[in-house]
Amino acid sequence: MKYLYILLLSCLMHTAWAQNKLSAESRVSLVTIAPGTELYSFFGHTLIRVYDPATGLDRAYSYGTFDFQTENFYWKFLKGTLPYSLSYNNMSDVLNYYSQYENRTLREQVLALNEDQKNQIFQALEKNYLPENRYYQYKFFYDNCATRIRDIFEQAAPGAYPWATMSRLEGLSYRDWMNRYLPSTAWVTFGMNLALGLPSDVTANASQSCYLPDNLEIATAQAMLNKQKLVEASFTLFEAQSNPSGSFDLLGPIPVLLAISLVLVFLSLRFSHKKGLLYGLDIVLFFIYGLLGILIFFLATATDHEVMSNNVSCFILWPINFPLVFWFAKNHRDGFWLKYVRIAFIVAFIASLISGYLFYGLFIIALPLLVRLFFLSRFYSK
């Protein structure tokens, strides 16, 4: 009886959804929200607005919703299994939130679609909003709030996006596009690049670059439908007040890591005869880098984050260096441990050059580690 009730309820919901139709006066728009100042908002956001004056409908659909109350939230976030979902709100509430609370610019592009195409998009959104369909496994580069909307538009207007001619959206890797939206000298930028593996360095084509809301907006502005622009009107819903640009951060990764590296060079030269001091220093240094290496290795091998796999940084932050430091830091003149340290230095140096080519900050992260491995290897005494 319970299953019969569920089946009946599902049929009723489906019937109600199927009968829900937009009028000829309705319009469908792409709404692009500018990047914000918090990490989760650095890359902007995108929505589909469905407006129908005949029924008073004015919804903003978003594929970027998640719930902090999800069981084991942080573990699922770390593992890449946190479910995201489609949600909608009244457009007036969305506009009020982003303008009054986050001070972020909102731009709207009204699409020149016929009634069937508008209803196709609306029905797709309503179908996706059903409880059994609304949740999905979020992928930052491949399946996010912008790519899902891109796919819906392409299904409703096949061939409208001339991807092959959009040279402005080509030529950069996923990582390069990401870094355009991150503060160049911030810890979060260094950390995110450290966690990314080689899949993030694949060159994205024009369609793939639309994982970023701004790029989807650009592509939509260039799209053509029946030899006419896909966008029939575009305007700014809210213009944010400009925020003052940040000053140079003395506690940022560049000054801190360079200072640590210089101090390590000085101590390694000045106190080479005081083995106890340098031994304790090595324990602390390799402990910190070892924990970081374990985290990066975990992200690369034991999570669903495909873009973190094949991470060259694992060879810089070699995880086993931490437990082994108790032996190689004390016995680095011993034949076996001397060979180990030299091999570790060469591998870390080559990996840091490769990683630094992909993002300069990764070489800077490696510097303190390279300094101590270099002195432990006794290359300087030759």
Rank of each mutant, 00 (worst) to 15 (best):
N133Q: 11
N133P: 13
R134Y: 02
R134K: 15
R134E: 01
Y135R: 13
Y136E: 00
Y138G: 04
Y138R: 04
Y138V: 01
K139T: 04
K139R: 11
K139A: 01
F140A: 05
F140K: 01
F140E: 07
F140N: 01
Y142R: 13
Y142P: 02
D143C: 02
D143N: 14
D143W: 03
N144C: 02
N144M: 04
N144W: 05
A146I: 05
T147M: 02
R148E: 00
I149V: 07
I149M: 03
R150S: 05
D151W: 09
D151A: 15
I152R: 12
F153W: 02
E154L: 08
E154T: 11
E154M: 12
Q155A: 15
Q155D: 15
A156D: 10
A157W: 12
A157H: 11
P158H: 08
A160K: 15
A160P: 09
Y161P: 11
W163V: 05
A164G: 12
M166K: 08
R168M: 08
L169Y: 13
E170Q: 13
E170P: 08
G171A: 06
L172F: 14
S173F: 04
S173Q: 05
Y174W: 08
R175V: 03
D176I: 07
W177Y: 09
W177E: 00
M178T: 05
M178Q: 11
N179I: 11
N179A: 06
Y181S: 04
L182S: 06
L182I: 10
S184Q: 14
S184F: 13
T185C: 03
A186C: 02
W187Q: 09
V188I: 12
V188Y: 07
V188P: 00
F190S: 10
G191I: 00
G191A: 10
M192K: 00
M192A: 06
N193I: 02
N193F: 03
L194P: 00
A195S: 10
A195P: 10
L196I: 05
G197Y: 04
G197I: 01
G197D: 05
L198Q: 13
P199T: 05
S200C: 08
D201Q: 13
D201N: 15
D201W: 10
V202H: 08
V202A: 10
N205L: 02
N205C: 04
A206Q: 09
A206D: 10
A206L: 06
S209T: 04
S209G: 06
S209F: 04
S209K: 06
C210N: 11
Y211K: 06
Y211L: 03
L212R: 13
L212D: 08
P213W: 06
N215Y: 05
L216S: 10
E217D: 12
I218Q: 12
A219F: 08
T220K: 07
T220G: 06
A221G: 14
Q222Y: 13
Q222H: 09
M224L: 13
M224T: 14
M224G: 10
L225A: 03
L225H: 15
L225W: 15
N226E: 11
K227V: 00
K227G: 10
K229G: 14
L230P: 09
L230M: 08
V231E: 03
E232R: 12
S234I: 07
F235E: 10
F235S: 15
F235C: 00
T236R: 01
L237K: 02
L237E: 10
F238G: 11
F238Y: 14
E239G: 07
E239Y: 00
E239W: 03
A240Q: 07
Q241N: 12
Q241C: 04
Q241P: 01
Q241A: 13
